[in-house]
Nucleic acid binder design. Structure first.
Lengths: 196, 196, 196, 196
DNA sequence: TATGAATGAGGATTCATTCAT
DNA sequence: GATGAATGAATCCTCATTCAT
């Protein structure tokens, strides 16, 4: 039994070792050999722990996402206004310290385009649910505080979609600065009932 | 001069021949040989017209997008209400007849993750601008008709982001039916001024 | 019949057009397409006149060698001493104006390593005979003038070999300046009967 | 550290396995696949040890040259007269047992025409120096023995050039028998002080 | 006669995967 | 359990050659 624990630990450890190189290179341009070297293990060892590159990234992103959730939670508590809290969910990923996360999340989307295995889908559903719950909770609170109109609760799904859209387009048509500005405008317009 | 015209024509012709197979398979799983066979030309010929697979898809998607724009325009005119027109922009892609387009647009996003060449970025900017103009126009009309509140015009960017988000998530966490339903809800909530 | 004449003329003309590019690139790195382009003709046309790249170079080198022979003859007459005349045969090729010739003669040796066809062998025998005759003639004259010892006439073959050796090594272990100096020393030592 | 030793050993081993096939075929007509098959290894393995075909031949020729030097040294000691020793340096390569060496040395010259990398140049300089030293030593001995005139020491460079020339022309204009005869005549004439 | 678009055989090269140590 | 040398399938890409115009 402790073996399993260790195995799981080592999986995470190996995956985390590859974080940096994945920030610099696309997964599809990385060979098993390079990843193994980055993790300071043999190629054969990598196969002991992962079926393929994609599985490794899934383990990695799971770790990063856990970290990220903690950060979100910590920082949300420091914000007072609901609107600020929601904006934080949108924008935290664009802070410099999360550049690497953004790149790897992007990489993950690319992976999910070709490998549609269960674990990946599960991760995505989980991500969606997390965000759905968090946003629902915050918006309901806003409604209770009479800040948001009651119909806002219906917007949760579309807000998540919007968040994804901002993420995608931040790699192409927009700079990060512009993205953050646009997100700010979006949140303000969406929840600003007074000036409507 | 006619040579240039013909070369360009042939490029489009070859690209279009590959439409079907791209619907069935991921580009990364397709070899140059398969694509050439699909287009009924030799491998060497493919290289005469395209630098690589990705360039071919760019030519293809440009064609499909042109078709799609025409369809959008035609169908928009048939709708009477502004809201219906906007919803059409969101949902037309999810109609059965555009299954193939959806798949190839998705493929294109995957390509743009690894190849960041100018032509691809230009296409994306162009796509964004088209949608920005179209939506701006419609929303402004809605404002003029007093259907939408004036602040709606600020939403154009975020609406495009939302559209992208719906597209992305429609491949993972949602079915198409659900996506269409969610889009309907989104549009209604966004533009329903009465119950606000 | 005039057609044949023209055909032969055009062969030479095409071959000469490729002189420059052969100075810059190795034949094995040149494609038929590049050579045709250099000669301002179509690829197919090149095939009308030559079986392959190597045949083209043979036609080219035959031309260059004809020119070179004329130059040798002209310049030999301007020298007074026999020794100077012989040294000229060795060194003329290393003058700047013949850089291109040297490169193409080298290329020709490379070709003759892989293609042992009759035409190439004939050219080489011809080259050997030309040099044998010329040198024999000069050395005999030297013997007649009592400048060289009678045994010198036996050296003709080895002198040609030495000439080839200087040519070969001038591309590798020596600079051209050094080669010219070494040739000068060689001729002097070989024919200097006094200080022996 | 033993790994490096083994790797080096294996390189030599693979290279030597290809000796025979290089005797039969030109390198440019040999594919990586054929060479790998000849060495009883996989294509990929060949790439583990060599960058390309040419590098392999360099390793091979280095081996062969080492052997050849030993042979020269052994046989030189068995000859009594200086002239015989020098003739041996010229002619040993034309003995039947070295047919394969000749072919591969020729191949090497062909390679050195296209690939001018450092290792090749180093080998050539090394070959030149070896011969220069050996010949200088022998000729000096001849001078000391009053067999050769003092000026002979100046001939070393040209003698090496002549040797190269004989080698080159032995593939084209001459048979091996004729070459050996001509070399014999050359040595005799060059060093025959009496009949001068 | 001249052409160059079309071709596909051929060869180089990569790299995931295996397996003996 | 860890390794990395060995492998060869897979794929890319080139380019000599053909042939319809």
């Amino acid at each position: 039994m402790p073996l399993v624990v260790n195995k799981e630990k080592k999986r995470k450890c190996i995956a985390l070792s590859c974080q940096e190189i994945l920030y610099k290179k696309n997964l599809k341009d990385l060979t098993i050999a390079e990843l193994a070297q980055e993790a300071n293990i043999g190629k054969g060892t990598l196969y002991e722990y992962f079926q393929n590159k994609e599985e490794m990234v899934l383990v990695l992103i799971t770790q990063l996402y856990e970290n990220f959730k903690l950060k979100i939670c910590t920082q949300i508590e420091q914000k007072k206004e609901i609107k600020e809290k929601i904006e934080l969910i949108f924008t935290l990923l664009y802070e410099d310290e999360f550049n690497c996360y953004r790149k790897i999340f992007k990489e993950f989307i690319a992976i999910s385009y070709s490998c549609n295995n269960e674990a990946i889908i599960k991760f995505q559903k989980n991500w969606y649910d997390d965000n759905f719950n968090l946003l629902s909770h915050l918006i309901q609170e806003g409604i209770n505080q009479k800040i948001f109109p009651p119909k806002s609760i219906k917007m949760v799904d579309s807000i998540i979609n919007t968040m994804v859209g901002f993420f995608i387009l931040s790699f192409y048509t927009k700079t990060i600065t512009q993205t953050k500005k646009d997100i700010h405008a979006y949140i303000n317009t969406l929840f600003d009932s007074k000036k409507q």
